[in-house]
């Protein structure tokens, strides 16, 4: 384990700040989906790069925790590596890429394919916590709309999608209603992941650093994606299984192989994909894919 940064508290933040954040988290858990303002601190990474998630993780992390950090579903994207290293350095906790082993998972843009369990906490990095923001730019007005549960405007947006495109054209950050009360932005995860939030046994925490908001979905809470009765919510389906591990019903990344239109689809959740390959599952392009995709050691 790397030596801890001298001069900094465990997990970077001072204990007073952590207590403040934990109070906000408790309030958020008590009112599922409600955005709790908190005195977000400057962090040593830029706003918009996960400062909200990092503060939430820092506030809940204990010495015995096992941390997994993903970005776009992958453990080794640059920002995930950077945040994981940050906690290795400042908290010295054990880290893992294995979803099932992690007690705390910080994520940007995905929910792991492996179903989360009781006792696990997933921390989402949130850029814009307000689902109504792009329909109504004023905080004072959106606050009133939440207070009075006036969410008609959100359906106006969905109506427009259907009128224009024949479908609801929102593909990520797809709005959900939590516990039958608060409209919530699930962070820019693809809507593919929305059903995983519903009745999840894990605690789901959301941190928005720049916008200074924390919200939460306690375990086993109803999370419903907005839709119309005659245009029900649907998740995107992929035509083919993962080209490397043959997994179906998972979210796939499109990888362009050459400039002649060659492309393949592979699991966005790299840990899931690698685990399956280790178990002997073989996709149709396994072995042919370039090393940067399969992440098998290049010779």
């Amino acid at each position: 384990m790397t030596t801890l940064h001298p001069g900094y508290n465990f997990a970077y933040l001072d204990e007073q700040t952590k207590r403040m954040i934990r109070r906000a988290i408790l309030k958020a858990v008590a009112i599922p989906g409600y955005q709790v303002p908190f005195a977000s601190r400057e962090m040593p990474m830029p706003y918009g790069w996960g400062t909200g998630g990092v503060q939430v993780t820092a506030a809940i992390l204990g010495e015995g925790d096992v941390l997994k950090v993903i970005d776009q579903g992958s453990d080794d994207t640059t920002n995930a590596v950077s945040i994981r290293k940050f906690f290795e350095k400042t908290a010295g906790v054990e880290t893992t890429t294995e979803t099932a082993r992690a007690t705390v998972i910080q994520t940007r843009h995905r929910i792991p394919e492996t179903a989360l369990q009781e006792g696990q906490t997933i921390v989402y990095q949130v850029p814009i916590p307000e689902p109504l923001r792009f329909l109504e730019p004023r905080e004072t007005e959106t606050r009133t709309m939440h207070g009075l549960e006036e969410y008609g405007l959100m359906h106006v947006k969905l109506y427009e999608d259907i009128a224009t495109h024949g479908h609801i054209a929102t593909t990520y950050a797809y709005p959900v209603k939590v516990n039958g009360r608060y409209l919530m932005d699930p962070s820019p995860t693809p809507k593919f992941d929305n059903p995983k939030m519903d009745m999840s046994p894990a605690l789901q925490l959301f941190g928005a650093g720049r916008e200074k908001r924390i919200y939460a979905i306690p375990p086993y809470t109803k999370v419903v994606s907005l839709d119309f009765e005659d245009h029900p919510f649907e998740v995107n389906k992929f035509d083919k299984p993962c080209a490397l591990c043959a997994a179906e019903g998972v979210y796939l990344d499109e990888v362009i192989l050459d400039d002649a239109g060659g492309r393949m689809f592979v699991c966005s959740d790299t840990d899931y994909c690698e685990t399956r390959r280790a178990e002997g599952h073989r996709g149709e392009m396994l072995g042919e894919a370039p090393a940067f995709v399969s992440r098998e050691p290049a010779e």
Binding site: H155, E160, A163
Partner: peptide, 27 residues
């Protein structure tokens, strides 16, 4: 009016605001 939103949505907004969730009916 909401000038950037279609005529149909302008008329339908109040219905959606009071809980109408059937696109076909609203339309």
């Amino acid at each position: 009016l909401r000038m950037a939103v279609s005529a149909g949505a302008n008329v339908g907004e109040r219905l959606m605001a009071v809980g109408d969730r059937h696109y076909g009916n609203i339309r």
